[in-house]
Simulated assay, not measured.
Amino acid sequence: MEQIALHYWWWILALVLIAVEVILPGYFMLWIGIAAGATGLVVLVIPGLSMLSQALVFVVLTFLSCAAYWYGLRPRLMRDEPGDTRLNRRGEQNIGQRYVLAEAIVNGRGKAKVGDSLWLVRGPDLPAGSAVEVVGVDGTTLLVRAVE
């Protein structure tokens, strides 16, 4: 049986590292796997490299691929993140929305019907049934103003 060419071992390592990334996502095994695959290409092109040289190529390519992700791709992904960035800040999702007071605002505090729940509101004194617009959020209290 023929011995497996050395560049295949690098590609097998790349596949294992990428599989680990798929099972336990965290981005870095992906980039180390890409470096292992690139090292396999280098060994294919330059077949006489010693194991020490191959290891050095792998280390350098690992640092380069991780740096390319961290300084190049990651900032773009963070900036261009799709969807509503206020996902876990429910109060902020209400800014600009209009609601009806379920309880009058007395001494600056009252309650408004938001969906199927009541939220605390703070704003000018208004009778129950008045329309209000959310202009801000303070913790779990909606800051409102009267709507004409």
Rank of each mutant, 00 (worst) to 15 (best):
I105L: 07
E2N: 15
A104Y: 03
S53A: 15
P127S: 11
R89I: 14
N107S: 13
G72I: 00
L101V: 12
A68R: 01
A146P: 08
T140Q: 13
I12T: 00
V135H: 11
A102R: 11
A55S: 04
V60E: 00
L120D: 11
V135W: 10
Q97W: 14
R79P: 00
E92S: 14
W119T: 05
R98H: 08
A128M: 08
Q54M: 10
V114M: 05
L126H: 05
A36T: 04
L120E: 08
Q3H: 13
P127R: 11
R98V: 10
L118W: 09
F63Y: 08
A19R: 14
A112T: 10
V137P: 04
G91E: 11
N88F: 06
L17R: 03
A67H: 06
R86Y: 06
T85L: 15
V20T: 02
P47S: 03
A128Q: 04
G110T: 02
L13P: 03
V147H: 04
M78Y: 04
A67L: 08
G40Q: 04
Y71S: 13
K113G: 06
R98N: 06
P82R: 12
L64S: 07
I23G: 07
V144Y: 05
L118M: 08
A14E: 06
L24S: 15
L77T: 02
A102N: 06
V106N: 09
